[in-house]
Design a protein around this nucleic acid. Structure first.
Lengths: 343, 343
DNA sequence: CTGAAAGCGCTAACAA
DNA sequence: TTGTTAGCGCTTTCAG
């Protein structure tokens, strides 16, 4: 079933059929109706490849996610998808597994397939890679802090500020041996977080113990391993700031396994406020990251970039959300009023 | 950069260039080398659309997932992706949000784009929908039990048997008011599970309380709501069999919030054995579903179907995994030896 | 083993 | 408003 058949059945030329698909306004209502009816009747579906061959547009975007098992990324992805659907874009979810080679592969594949834009969540791509995409006139939006000189819109949260709020809270709760456990990825964000951590310690005139700063894999297991390592060291912390809730869940599990009471012996603060945070015991004090919202904003920026054909030099767009501390039980607060059920 | 350019630079015809891409054996080694060199030099990439237009094959599959925030589905998806990568297929992850219309939409989009096959995890599609895909000669594999007469390979787990093992365990633990909280989706699996639940009660000569059987949304929140409803009813259960771990986590949270001790007052058993199950407090007794493995198997079946061009009437393939009960603390067992750390 | 040329199904410039 | 027709970039017969 092709356009020729439709044309024949409708008694018009292929051009007219093509027009009702692409520029409906330029066709007389009568013919339009007639053609639509024939299309319906014949169950006609335009051929995707023939179309792409001419248009080089696909109304499709690539959405890169480092880890599909990590809910903090997936909630962002959900936000991106919501806007994509709303604007009739198909989003191709690409699971990059925190692997630069895989990312590059996907970029290549998707560019071949002429997708209209990229939303990269916590990507590992380097400036060169990103620049190469932009030079093909395919817009890119970054979600998550990223060290780059490329002129691409970025949606992020103030990681350093968030970390400071978290650690300041621990200081206020009277903790003095505060450890920081951060993930290997995403790089820049964790750098910011540890920087914030160190600044607060310095401001509070607390000595920085190098043994109390450690990097692990960004996963539940990573958190588990990290916590055990801290507790087995020669400087035992009385609080741990963890760079993600996923890791923090592992930390809690490790401490429980060792019979260490949270928050009495060790206070724990996470980062992200994923749903699970309020479901573990004790409920996790954390820094809220507006995950879903960041996804929405990111995709909106991309749509703007894709659909605004005029090369208006829009000022470099950068959306920075403000982190908010959510105090629950794991950090040792006694006033439980702030504990509410977060769906 | 197109095939014409390459041909010109190499001093051959486009046909020959095309041949080194598609049937390298039919080209003289010398010319082949020459052409490959030119391709490299010019950074030539065959045009995806032109190619598809002729071949109608894309080495791409569609992978349907009902909920990207549900780790039980995502672990299956990960398994599918692993094999896909290994066999050089690109997997398009489609988030269907448990919405039949969305699923149909994706089917339409992907068929247009000539993907080579579908892996459907707990799909809502009806026989008619699936039949329509098969008739286009695009193979389909189902993961998860599904009521269908279509001749498609299915990868599943014995849900009824799993449920029976879970409930029998509760009976053995001395519980007599056993509730069953099951999810709205996936339909067939939950039907099987409740059936298993009822059979065990009957066999144990325990009275079935209709108030102790309830359906809720398959999510943490659904579990939360369901547990509260049970505990507020006029027949209070002393055990709850929950059809998924995700829901069970919500159940545990609800009980904790109401000050009800698990497993002392109420025992809880889940289903799936997601990673989180061993991280909640108390650790969750559950029925193991080999999620990753089911994904691997499903994709292997699909590859077989896609690459076996000969229409050999292979016997209807159906892989059924055996469910295994994993006893942890939440069901009230006192011998803790079985509690191990599941990464 | 290689080349010429006919499509694949569609879009868009150009003509009418 | 509609039709004619030349591509888009590639694969594949058919001849040589």
């Amino acid at each position: 079933m092709n356009i020729k058949e439709v044309a024949k059945h409708a008694g018009v030329s292929v051009a007219t059929v093509s027009r009702v698909l692409n520029h409906p306004d330029s066709v007389a209502d009568k013919t339009k109706e007639k053609i639509s009816a024939v299309m319906e009747e014949l169950g006609y579906q335009p051929n995707w490849f023939a179309r792409g061959l001419n248009l080089n547009k696909t109304h499709t975007i690539g959405l890169f996610v480092p880890d599909i098992l990590d809910p903090s990324y997936m909630e962002i992805a959900k936000g991106v998808e919501d806007i994509a659907h709303q604007r009739q874009y198909t989003a191709l979810l690409c699971h990059t597994e925190n692997d630069l080679e895989k990312e590059r592969n996907y970029v290549k594949t998707l560019l071949e397939r002429k997708i209209d834009g990229f939303v990269l969540i916590s990507t590992l791509l380097l400036d060169g890679d990103i620049q190469a995409i932009i030079e093909q006139n395919v817009p890119v939006v970054l979600i998550g802090q990223h060290k780059t000189n490329c002129k691409v819109p970025v949606v992020q949260i103030g990681c350093k500020l968030g970390a400071k709020k978290a650690v300041e809270h621990l200081v206020e709760m009277g903790r003095s041996n505060i450890a920081c456990l951060y993930g290997r990825t995403p790089k820049e964000e964790n750098a910011q977080k540890t920087e914030g951590y160190q600044e607060v310690l310095a401001d509070a005139k607390l000595e920085q113990q190098p043994q109390l700063l450690a990097e692990v894999e960004n996963s539940i297991f990573g958190g588990y391993v990290g916590a055990r390592r801290f507790m087995a060291g020669d400087v035992v912390p009385d609080a741990i700031f963890v760079s993600s809730d996923v890791m923090a869940v592992g930390v809690l599990d490790a401490l429980r396994g060792m019979g260490i009471a949270v928050p009495e012996d060790v206070a724990v603060v996470g980062f992200d406020n994923i749903r699970m945070s309020s479901l573990v015991e004790p409920k996790l004090t954390t820094v809220e990251k507006p995950l879903h919202n960041m996804g929405l904003s990111g995709m909106r920026l991309l749509v703007d970039a894709m659909e605004c054909t005029e090369e208006l030099e829009n000022p470099l767009q950068q959306i920075t959300f403000e982190p908010k501390l959510i105090v629950r039980k794991s950090s040792g607060n006694t006033e439980r009023i702030l504990e509410i059920f977060h769906r």
